[in-house]
Lab assay of single mutants.
Amino acid sequence: MATGGRRGAAAAPLLVAVAALLLGAAGHLYPGEVCPGMDIRNNLTRLHELENCSVIEGHLQILLMFKTRPEDFRDLSFPKLIMITDYLLLFRVYGLESLKDLFPNLTVIRGSRLFFNYALVIFEMVHLKELGLYNLMNITRGSVRIEKNNELCYLATIDWSRILDSVEDNYIVLNKDDNEECGDICPGTAKGKTNCPATVINGQFVERCWTHSHCQKVCPTICKSHGCTAEGLCCHSECLGNCSQPDDPTKCVACRNFYLDGRCVETCPPPYYHFQDWRCVNFSFCQDLHHKCKNSRRQGCHQYVIHNNKCIPECPSGYTMNSSNLLCTPCLGPCPKVCHLLEGEKTIDSVTSAQELRGCTVINGSLIINIRGGNNLAAELEANLGLIEEISGYLKIRRSYALVSLSFFRKLRLIRGETLEIGNYSFYALDNQNLRQLWDWSKHNLTITQGKLFFHYNPKLCLSEIHKMEEVSGTKGRQERNDIALKTNGDQASCENELLKFSYIRTSFDKI
């Protein structure tokens, strides 16, 4: 039985969820670079991206490699990797027998973001014989899940209580170790020597080791999670996991709180800001991140802002960003909400898709409305799209047979046209069989910064309504002859009103 693990408890099935942008060198404390989270699957090609990484700022997932063999891993080693800020997950990587050479110096898994409450997941690794993470000293947050690894031993010899604050939620089941077939031998045991430290858990006094050649490092209890030197002297209180010299914040392997210019500090002093819960960055760093993602459509890219001495992905609820200094300031009234469309555009074809934009005031991208039916549609669209004030790209209304009016965009005031449909149009209306009105132009103002209007096959939309939009939106004169079809717009509506004058002759039985 794995020490510190839980057996036999019912657990939810383990679901495996399925960018080499360097964020800056980590400095003297770390020998390499800070790398983003990685999802490495199918083959070993991307694994080489770990070569210079000291910190993975995010998670590391290595999974679904069915053609790899043990010899493929023999020359692979990433000794610079010290810390993973989120979680480490391995799933069905064939041929991998140990992690001792792959990650010989991995010391800390912070667990800032977890995989279903777990910071370390080893699942269905069919050839893994031992973990071998002999320098792993601290899992700051989260638990361990090690399950269905039929060859995995050296679990009962690990004292997880020396690595985690609590072992109650560890789930370590259905491994070879369960069948008591392992016969784990710690260093020196074969020669009758006791080389590794022994600890007591559940009444068992057991030597602690990761492999037959690597003991588990056990520091004096007084050192807590700070770690200790090879001689057993406690590291500085700002260290986490390990250090090369005692009581020196510049000799830590990793930091308990924050890293700044080669030393570990309790908090980031001005003019620095907390970033990702582990390091200090200056304003320029946060500003660069903001600008890199301002026009990016890459998933996970955030326009970072500053709030409460932190550089964070977005302002919290009730705050909006001051564009001059990136500071989050309290909103006066309802907060603006910028919604970034991942692929640059979004099609609204149902109430469900409209709900995804609920509360958005600025759309960074283009909207395509293609709704053919739905219950209580006008009210639903207004509830979900009615706060949109600005669209950076274009607005396209296409084959939306259920629409009679666009009044559900009740606050839309600006279409920038930074991206144009077919390279020309910022407003595009095609084949809307029941569209009769755009907006009530006596109450609604709309500016279209650039781009043209396109109207074709809107049989109940009168040309007068379209011409009014040209005047109000500032697009009059931009359109070419064929942009607004004269014969297919309003051709099934009563669009022309003329005053009919009647004269009559009164007659009676005795007068003409």
Rank of each mutant, 00 (worst) to 15 (best):
H28Q: 07
L29Q: 03
Y30K: 06
Y30C: 15
P31G: 14
G32Q: 13
E33C: 15
E33I: 07
V34E: 13
V34Y: 04
P36C: 06
P36G: 15
P36T: 08
G37L: 04
G37A: 14
D39E: 14
D39C: 10
N43R: 08
N43D: 09
T45M: 11
H48E: 14
L50Y: 05
L50S: 01
E51K: 01
N52I: 04
C53D: 00
S54E: 09
V55T: 06
I56S: 01
G58E: 00
H59G: 09
H59S: 08
L60T: 01
L60W: 00
Q61N: 02
Q61L: 04
I62W: 02
L63Y: 15
F66S: 05
R69E: 05
R69M: 08
P70M: 10
D72R: 14
F73S: 02
F73V: 09
R74T: 11
D75I: 11
D75V: 11
S77R: 12
S77H: 01
F78L: 07
F78T: 01
K80L: 11
L81M: 08
L81Q: 00
I82E: 10
M83L: 10
M83A: 05
M83T: 05
M83W: 03
M83Q: 07
D86V: 01
Y87C: 00
L90E: 00
L90R: 00
F91N: 06
V93K: 00
Y94Q: 15
Y94A: 14
S98A: 11
L99A: 10
L99I: 08
L99Y: 01
K100V: 04
D101K: 04
L102Q: 00
P104A: 01
N105Y: 10
N105M: 04
V108W: 08
I109G: 00
G111Q: 00
G111W: 01
L114V: 03
F115W: 04
F115C: 06
F115A: 13
F116N: 14
F116Q: 03
N117I: 02
A119L: 00
V121M: 06
V121H: 10
V121W: 01
I122R: 00
I122C: 09
F123P: 00
M125Q: 04
V126I: 04
L128R: 00
L128G: 01
K129I: 12
K129Q: 14
E130A: 08
E130H: 10
E130F: 14
L131W: 02
Y134V: 15
N135R: 08
L136K: 01
M137T: 09
M137P: 01
M137N: 11
I139E: 00
I139A: 02
T140V: 07
T140F: 05
G142V: 02
S143A: 14
I146Q: 02
I146Y: 02
E147Q: 08
E147T: 06
E147L: 15
K148S: 15
N150A: 05
N150K: 05
N150R: 07
C153Q: 03
Y154S: 08
L155Y: 06
L155T: 08
L155C: 14
A156F: 09
T157I: 03
T157Q: 09
T157N: 06
I158L: 10
I158P: 04
I158N: 04
I158H: 06
W160V: 01
W160L: 05
R162K: 10
I163K: 01
L164Q: 04
L164N: 05
D165K: 02
S166T: 10
S166M: 14
E168F: 04
V173Y: 02
K176Y: 03
N179Y: 03
E180D: 03
E180Y: 07
E180Q: 11
C182I: 03
G183M: 07
G183K: 13
D184A: 13
D184Q: 15
D184I: 06
I185F: 14
I185W: 15
C186S: 03
P187I: 07
T189P: 06
G192K: 15
G192Q: 11
K193A: 03
K193T: 12
T194H: 09
T194A: 12
T194P: 10
N195G: 06
P197F: 05
P197S: 12
P197E: 05
A198W: 10
V200A: 09
V200T: 02
V200Q: 11
I201G: 13
I201S: 15
I201K: 12
N202F: 13
G203W: 11
G203R: 11
Q204T: 05
Q204G: 01
F205I: 05
C209V: 02
C209Y: 01
C209L: 02
W210F: 02
H212F: 14
H214E: 06
C215F: 07
C215Y: 03
Q216A: 10
Q216W: 07
K217P: 07
K217G: 03
C219E: 02
P220D: 05
P220R: 04
T221E: 13
I222N: 07
C223V: 01
C223L: 02
K224T: 06
K224R: 04
S225Y: 09
H226K: 08
G227D: 02
G227N: 02
G227K: 12
C228D: 05
C228Q: 02
C228I: 02
T229R: 08
A230H: 07
A230M: 15
A230S: 08
E231N: 05
C234L: 01
C234I: 02
C235G: 00
E238Q: 08
E238G: 11
E238F: 09
C239Q: 01
L240Y: 07
G241N: 02
G241Q: 05
G241W: 01
N242K: 08
N242F: 08
C243Q: 01
S244I: 11
Q245F: 13
D248N: 06
D248A: 08
P249S: 05
T250S: 10
T250I: 09
K251N: 06
A254T: 11
R256D: 04
R256A: 04
N257F: 11
N257V: 01
N257L: 04
F258E: 03
L260V: 09
L260Q: 02
G262S: 08
G262W: 01
C264R: 00
V265D: 03
V265S: 07
V265P: 00
P270T: 06
P270W: 12
P271D: 01
P271G: 15
P271L: 04
Y272R: 01
Y273K: 12
Y273H: 13
H274R: 05
F275G: 03
W278T: 08
W278L: 05
R279A: 12
R279W: 11
R279C: 02
C280H: 00
V281W: 00
N282C: 01
S284I: 05
F285Y: 02
F285K: 02
L289K: 15
L289H: 14
L289A: 11
H290D: 08
H290M: 11
H290V: 12
H291E: 15
R298E: 08
R298W: 15
Q299L: 11
Q299C: 07
Q299H: 15
H302I: 09
H302F: 05
Q303W: 05
Y304G: 12
Y304N: 01
Y304I: 08
V305R: 11
I306S: 02
H307V: 07
H307F: 08
H307G: 07
N308A: 09
K310P: 02
K310T: 06
K310M: 08
I312M: 12
P313L: 15
P313K: 04
E314C: 05
E314A: 12
S317M: 12
S317I: 03
G318L: 10
M321W: 14
M321H: 14
N322G: 05
S324Y: 02
N325R: 09
N325E: 14
L326N: 13
L326E: 08
L327W: 11
L327T: 03
C328L: 02
L332E: 15
L332I: 09
P334L: 10
C335H: 09
P336S: 06
P336Y: 11
